[in-house]
Design a protein around this nucleic acid. Structure first.
Length: 525
RNA sequence: GCCCCUGUAGCUCAGGGGAUAGAGCGCUACCCUCCGGAGGUAGAAGCGAAGGUUCGAAUCCUUCCAGGGGCACCA
């Protein structure tokens, strides 16, 4: 037709606008300098010739409203049934090698609520990226040396000796537990010189802490492909090598005894120190080397999830990437997410009473915790109402979704008990799925692959949760309008088999979606 | 002072340029001949403010107001 431009087809909000609708004619009008109505006429004529399209109407300024034949709609059931757990997967991110880093809590304390959000979101995002065809490495970066660790060891040491914890130390309740365990495992430790004791506290304390962290995360359904230790990178000379590379590129200068990176050349608001005046590299310097390492390991996109309190990190990091000769728009993606509040109280790692991952799970369970943390846009601060998420009522969104799944599972069990197990799909008259609520449900199921693709592309796993809530609602409305199993003294209706299959495919989509969020899909509740 | 995020129904939040702005909870009135009522139907109720771009703006731009988070030779 001689037209160029992007084509967008979507489910219209209003059923009167057909099964699918497109604004293509309006989008194309400007670039092709023809009127929207003319283009719409051309497209409509072509579309009407396609098998399975029942009607094409032009509405308003140039919308195309497309109606599908019942058989074409029902065919979706076959598609979903055949693809099963793979339904929804696409290749939209195929070919991309993504390294995604999240949580990265140092082993000086338990995983707190802020980290927990990134555990839930990062894990779901990684699953989405895999489901859309990307090659993904999930990564956890940690440091077990340095000032933070010294304070940790000093805190353990002080508690073990019954002394007061230093002002800049850690004072959570776990400190006493860890200290006791270290002392238990090292008889006579407190009689050793303090230097020696601190070393043991640091080494053993970190090991205990990190084991506990990994267990908490694993119980939460979150594991990583790589646990990356910063210290090893210093030891291998990778940090020095990166400094040399930047120096050779002319981005480095010395002032006040320290080595500075001229990040202002790349838009940062001030230059940054990479080697302190005492000769020790800064954390930022290690981050440079770490980025290089990820790239050398094959990542063409380095994704990092961070809390809002780290947003100042973006400018620095982008400057660095530019200094190394990469284009940060292409290879670096720092996702900043907002923080989590529990009933108004805010979390601080140094403060004694913080809510940990384990405490959260204990209060509301893994499913509710993961769902609650992944259901909101990362740009939104979450105010977590523990009472709501602990409740077993439909106030609780995760229950609403899980209930729909359990209800279907129950229905299919009942059907089997009545001798109506799912029949082979080949002989099922799927074209009978032509009622409004059936059509609505089919339309919703058909959207799933697009939802996943968009959620992965926009790094927005919450879209999956919102979709599942909408799908659960659509199913309940179908269920309310369409009787499936025969009543006591009735024969099965011809619609029974296709409806059973419609239920089964809905169950599949709900389960696939919940799987991407790390939430269980219960057979009964 | 500068930077980032947010402001949508009474509450918690969706809505990444399209048609009459949605969901859950809460409220009001219904559906118990209903396979899981942990469900469904109907109703009241909303884009912080002002400009601008566009055929079309909750969405993009500017300013202002309000809330949150940052601005280290800490991590």
């Amino acid at each position: 037709m001689g037209l160029t431009g992007e084509v967008v087809v979507e489910r219209p909000a209003n059923r009167e606008h057909g099964d699918y609708a497109s604004n293509t004619a309006m989008r194309l009008a400007r670039s092709n300098s023809r009127s929207p109505r003319d283009i719409a006429e051309l497209l409509a004529t072509a579309l009407r010739r396609i098998d399975g399209i029942k009607s094409v109407e032009i509405a308003g300024p140039g919308f195309l409203n497309i109606g599908l034949a019942a058989a074409a709609q029902g065919a979706l059931v076959s598609t979903i049934a055949q693809r099963g757990v793979a339904y929804g997967r696409t290749e939209t991110l195929a070919g991309q090698h993504i390294n995604i880093e999240y949580v990265s809590a140092n082993p000086v304390g338990p995983v707190h609520i802020g980290h927990t959000r990134w555990a839930a979101v990062g894990d779901s995002l990684a699953r989405l990226m895999v489901a859309t065809g990307a090659t993904v490495v999930r990564e956890y970066y940690f440091n077990d040396a340095g000032a933070q660790i010294d304070r940790f060891a000093a805190s353990l040491d002080a508690v073990a000796r019954g002394e007061q914890i230093p002002g800049d130390g850690y004072r959570g309740g776990y400190i006493a537990d860890v200290a006791a365990e270290v002392v238990q495992a090292n008889q006579g430790l407190l009689e050793e010189p303090r230097e020696k004791a601190l070393e043991v506290f640091a080494h053993d304390g970190i090991e205990l802490m990190f084991t506990a962290i990994r267990k908490s995360l694993a119980d939460f359904g979150v594991t990583f492909d790589v646990y990356f230790n910063e210290r090893e990178m210093h030891a291998s000379g990778a940090v020095e090598a990166t400094v040399r590379k930047l120096r050779d590129a002319g981005h480095v200068y010395e002032a006040d005894g320290a080595v500075w990176l001229r990040t202002t050349d790349f838009g940062d608001d001030k230059d940054r120190v990479i080697v302190r005046s005492d000769g020790r590299p800064t954390y930022f310097c290690a981050d440079l080397a770490y980025y290089v390492d990820k790239r050398e390991r094959g990542a063409d996109k380095v994704v990092i999830l961070l809390g809002a309190d780290h947003h100042g990190y973006i400018g620095r990091m982008r400057s660095l990437v530019s200094g190394l000769g990469d284009n940060p728009d292409e290879t670096l993606e720092i996702i900043i997410g907002q923080l989590v509040n529990i009933r108004g109280g805010k979390m601080s790692k140094r403060a004694g009473n913080l809510l940990t991952l384990e405490e959260l799970v204990e209060a509301i369970g893994v499913d509710a915790a993961r769902y609650a943390l992944v259901r909101s846009s990362m740009d939104s601060t979450i105010d977590l109402d523990l009472d709501l998420w602990a409740s077993q009522t439909s106030d609780n969104p995760v229950f609403y979704v899980q209930y729909a799944h359990a209800r279907i599972a129950s229905l299919l069990r009942n059907a089997a008990d009545l001798g109506h197990s799912l029949p082979p799909l080949a002989g099922v008259p799927l074209e009978l799925l032509s009622q409004e609520k059936e059509s609505d449900l089919l339309g919703a199921l058909g959207e799933f692959p697009r939802i996943l693709a968009a959620a992965a592309q926009f790094r927005a796993p919450h879209r999956v949760a919102r979709y599942l809530e909408a799908l659960a609602g659509t199913y309940h409305r179908f269920y309310d309008a369409c009787r499936i199993l025969p009543r006591a003294d009735e024969e099965p209706a011809p619609e029974m088999a296709p409806r059973l299959w419609l239920c089964e495919t809905t169950r599949t989509v709900l389960a696939n979606g919940m799987g991407l969020l790390g939430v269980s899909a219960p057979e009964r509740m």
